[in-house]
Amino acid sequence: MLYGVMKISVGNGLKLAFRPWAEGLENVPAEGPAILASNHLSFSDSFFLPAVLDRKVTFIAKAEYFTTPGLRGRLTAAFFRGAGQLPVDRSGVRGAGEAAIRSGIQVLERGELFGIYPEGTRSPDGRLYRGKPGGLARVALATGAPVLPVAMIDTEKIQPPGKVVPKLMRPGIRIGRPLDFSRYRGMEGDRFVLRSLTDEVMYKIMKLSGQEYVDMYATAAKRLIAEREKAEKAGKTPDPGGSGASGRAPEAGPEGRDAPGGADRAA
């Protein structure tokens, strides 16, 4: 009920104000479970994507959005619940990952759409970063649900960091054809399989979005950017070679097992 109200009010409001364009909507199944694996450019991604879909799509959100005290906190919690987002306790990296996986499996077992950002966090500079294999791959293999690669276009330009008033412009959404990973069923414990599946999805997202690919995790990139800014403020010269970013595209399919950075790094 609450989702329907939010869909009409917020979803229609976004479509009227920003007029987002969408391609590949026919790839979203009319019923049954499916995973929407998207790049992540902006806080608004979780609202623009559901706005263009006829079906409900559930994302996970940090628990703090649902537990902040006071009137503002209650309103924020109601907004996120109405938008179809689930709270996940992020206390501890492993705990957060397991909670996200459980939530995704439950959503898909109900025959619904589950939205996930394989990069794990928003891109700090508009480029596409290495996907984390723990969440997307494990949910896909545990449920057998098809994975639809999704590219959000220009959403980061609507409200850049530090800007309070959003810019009225048309963002875009491209949805690719469903990817079937049934060939990997029963191999959830193989880290090479998890890496291969994730790289294949990231390659499809890269092709849809046209983004430059960076062979490192977005969380690591954010730390490096923060360290660089801190060094610049202190008057020090940052290490120009410290990013470790190669810009090399992820390999797709089984050949991608040894792709970007190796499969043995922790997600």
Rank of each mutant, 00 (worst) to 15 (best):
residue 9 S to N: 05
residue 21 W to G: 08
residue 27 N to Q: 08
residue 27 N to M: 04
residue 30 A to V: 02
residue 32 G to L: 08
residue 33 P to E: 01
residue 34 A to M: 06
residue 36 L to S: 10
residue 44 S to H: 10
residue 46 S to G: 10
residue 47 F to V: 09
residue 48 F to W: 02
residue 51 A to I: 05
residue 58 T to Q: 13
residue 58 T to C: 13
residue 59 F to Q: 02
residue 68 T to H: 13
residue 76 T to N: 06
residue 78 A to I: 12
residue 82 G to F: 03
residue 84 G to R: 07
residue 85 Q to Y: 03
residue 93 V to R: 15
residue 94 R to D: 12
residue 105 I to N: 00
residue 105 I to Y: 00
residue 106 Q to H: 06
residue 109 E to T: 00
residue 110 R to N: 03
residue 111 G to E: 08
residue 112 E to I: 08
residue 116 I to H: 07
residue 120 G to W: 11
residue 123 S to K: 09
residue 125 D to V: 14
residue 126 G to F: 11
residue 134 G to T: 08
residue 136 L to Y: 00
residue 141 L to C: 12
residue 143 T to L: 06
residue 143 T to K: 07
residue 145 A to E: 02
residue 146 P to T: 09
residue 147 V to S: 06
residue 148 L to E: 12
residue 153 I to K: 03
residue 153 I to Q: 01
residue 156 E to T: 06
residue 157 K to T: 12
residue 163 K to Q: 14
residue 171 P to R: 02
residue 172 G to N: 05
residue 174 R to W: 05
residue 175 I to E: 09
residue 177 R to A: 14
residue 177 R to W: 13
residue 182 S to M: 07
residue 185 R to H: 14
residue 192 F to C: 10
residue 195 R to D: 03
residue 196 S to P: 04
residue 202 M to A: 02
residue 211 Q to D: 06
residue 215 D to P: 12
residue 216 M to D: 14
residue 226 A to E: 14
residue 234 A to D: 14
residue 248 R to E: 15
residue 250 P to D: 04
residue 253 G to Y: 11
residue 259 A to R: 01
residue 260 P to Y: 15
residue 261 G to D: 14
residue 262 G to M: 15
